[in-house]
Nucleic acid binder design. Structure first.
Length: 498
RNA sequence: GGGCCGGUAGCUCAAUCAGGCAGAGCAGCGGGCUUUUAACCCGAAGGUUGUGGGUUCGAUUCCCACCCGGCCUACCA
């Protein structure tokens, strides 16, 4: 195959044809437009830190070798000013025809987007721009396609998601969010590890989609000839590890749910789940408040954030509301999980909610809560003591059999974290699964499936345990002030092109 | 899934309301300039107006269908 057959039409477009021709010219002159390596010894940020205090027109006497992408090029007679962008920032390449000789024309012939290496002394120009005064430069990789507009960047949302590399090249915000996400993950890991939690990895492919109530992605394992599901949670696997004696365990788990796509939902997302033996949900409240505070400090250097124009104080302790009490306060109806379901249904219908006849009081109150309470909670709030009916994996409340020792952290009107005193009574767990099977039979296709393998593990004895799940993407949204989950996921789910 | 909005040069945007030669800036090309900072000046280029139909003498513009995206909504974390 000749190297021309695979240019995919690039030679047909005037902008790319010019660049292809430059590649050919370089090769014809014995050069390599794609050399195998290069050895930079300085970064834009490092140079700024070391030499930022040079006076205008002053020379540092220090020679550096830098590498990056050419983002700007201003040709002024026998001078040329290039803008080199590397992973740390930008530095000007100051080229002087009298120093570069015949190579000066090659420098001005570079295209925006080319990857370039340069060697020269760090100086500050007369106009005060810190620069590398180029004595030698090398084309490190020819860019055949033009960059988006240098001032406005890439605005087209679809292109920004599909071609995230362009977004990262030209939009500083995109790079900042990527960095904040990385810092968030590192800070979460650090917070849990310092508390003695061990990080593990459990199956993504599971024979039963357990641990949450959601529609899974289905797939098939050919060699085992068995249907499998992409995990919707890691809960039951981490509890197996608690049973196995791993007393503090966590996983940063990519999780998959075959549900709608929205500014707050991506079919694959990241959840951190942790389990702590001998702890109850009160211990977990302290844990989540501590962890979120630490992460906010690591990422934002403060816990007093602004989210979408409104104050978002992440520092704990957070207010704690009773789940049923909050529903009552919001609607003026004296909800009681022990009330006759018909009464609850009537009251909820009076609020304009559509209630399925098969629902129990717990599910009805949950509907009321999600409609009338959750959207109104802006600052982080712990809502505790959920209906046991909608909490099949949580321990029954020590004082009220209708409730579970479960809480969620609500922030900006949506769930940020979900936690409970874990259910470790295997007989009760079996009954809860059976109740879920009944709900499934009644038409709830997100009811939790029976999991005999997990029950067998529970029957060996699980210590009292506090469990926690944190929506990592949503946490990053809060920390970076982003309204859409797609802004904090590098490659959000999209329909295939064409 | 439903509703609303959008898709024009490589990129950022005009023109669409009320049908009449589709324009500009950046990028690219040619030329000039020894201190630029979105450099500037001169010149010449660059278009299947998302796709396919329809109405019309004439469609980027009006109509229909479809594709892709955004927001809202539904499901959910």
């Amino acid at each position: 195959m000749s190297e021309h057959e695979d240019t995919a039409g690039l030679e047909d477009h005037r902008l790319t044809a010019v660049r292809l021709a430059k590649v050919e010219a370089i090769r014809a002159a014995g050069g390599d437009p794609y050399p195998p390596n290069f050895g930079p010894n300085a970064t834009a940020a490092g140079i700024a830190e070391a030499h930022g205090d040079l006076a205008d027109g002053e020379e540092s006497g220090v020679e550096v070798v830098v590498a990056g992408r050419l983002m700007g090029l201003r040709h002024v007679g026998k001078l040329a000013f290039g803008v080199l962008q590397d992973g740390s920032g930008r530095i000007q390449l100051f080229s002087v025809a009298t120093r570069l000789g015949s190579r000066f024309d090659d420098f001005t012939d570079l295209d925006l987007g080319d990857l370039v290496g340069a060697r020269g002394e760090v100086i500050k120009t007369k106009r005060g721009e810190l620069s590398v005064r180029v004595d030698e430069f090398t084309l490190l990789a020819k860019a055949l396609r033009p960059l988006p507009e240098k001032w406005h960047g890439l605005q087209d949302v679809e292109k920004r998601y599909r071609q995230r590399y362009l977004d990262l090249i030209v939009n500083e915000d995109a790079r900042a969010i990527l960095g904040a996400r990385s810092t968030t993950i590192a800070a979460l890991r650090d917070s849990f590890e310092r508390r003695g939690f061990i990080e593990v990895e459990t199956p993504v492919l599971q024979p039963i989609a357990s641990g949450a109530m959601a529609k899974p992605f289905e797939t098939h394992h050919n060699a085992l000839d068995t249907d499998m599901y992409l995990r919707i949670a890691v809960e039951l696997y981490l509890k197996r590890l608690i049973i196995g004696g791993v007393d503090r365990v966590f996983e940063i788990a990519r999780t998959f749910r075959n549900e709608g796509v929205s500014p707050r939902h991506n079919p694959e997302f990241t959840m951190l789940e942790s389990y702590q033996a001998y702890a109850d949900y009160y211990d977990v409240m302290d844990l989540i408040e501590g962890v979120i505070g630490e992460v906010a400090l690591a990422v934002c250097a403060t816990t007093d954030l602004t989210y979408q124009g409104r104050p978002m104080p992440l520092g704990g302790p957070w207010p704690r509301l009773g789940y049923v009490d909050a529903a009552a306060a919001a609607t003026g109806i004296d909800w009681d999980l022990g009330m006759p379901p018909a009464d609850a249904r009537k009251a909820a219908s009076g609020l304009g909610l559509e209630i399925d006849d098969a629902w129990g009081v717990g599910k009805i109150v949950a509907e009321v809560f999600e409609e009338h309470v959750e959207p109104t909670l802006w600052e982080p709030t712990i809502v505790m003591d959920f209906p046991v009916e909608i909490s099949p994996l949580a321990r029954r409340h020590r004082d009220d059999p209708h409730k579970a020792e479960r809480f969620e952290v609500i922030a900006a009107g949506r769930e940020l974290a979900n936690a409970f005193s874990e259910l470790n009574d295997p007989v009760d767990q079996r009954r809860r699964f059976e109740a879920q099977l009944e709900a499934r039979a009644a038409g709830d296709d997100e009811a939790h499936p029976m999991d005999e393998d997990f029950l067998r593990a529970l029957e060996h004895g699980m210590p009292p345990t506090g469990g926690l799940g944190i929506g990592v993407d949503r946490l990053v949204m809060l920390l970076t002030d982003q309204a859409s989950i797609r802004e904090v996921i590098l490659f959000p789910a999209m329909r295939p092109e064409s």
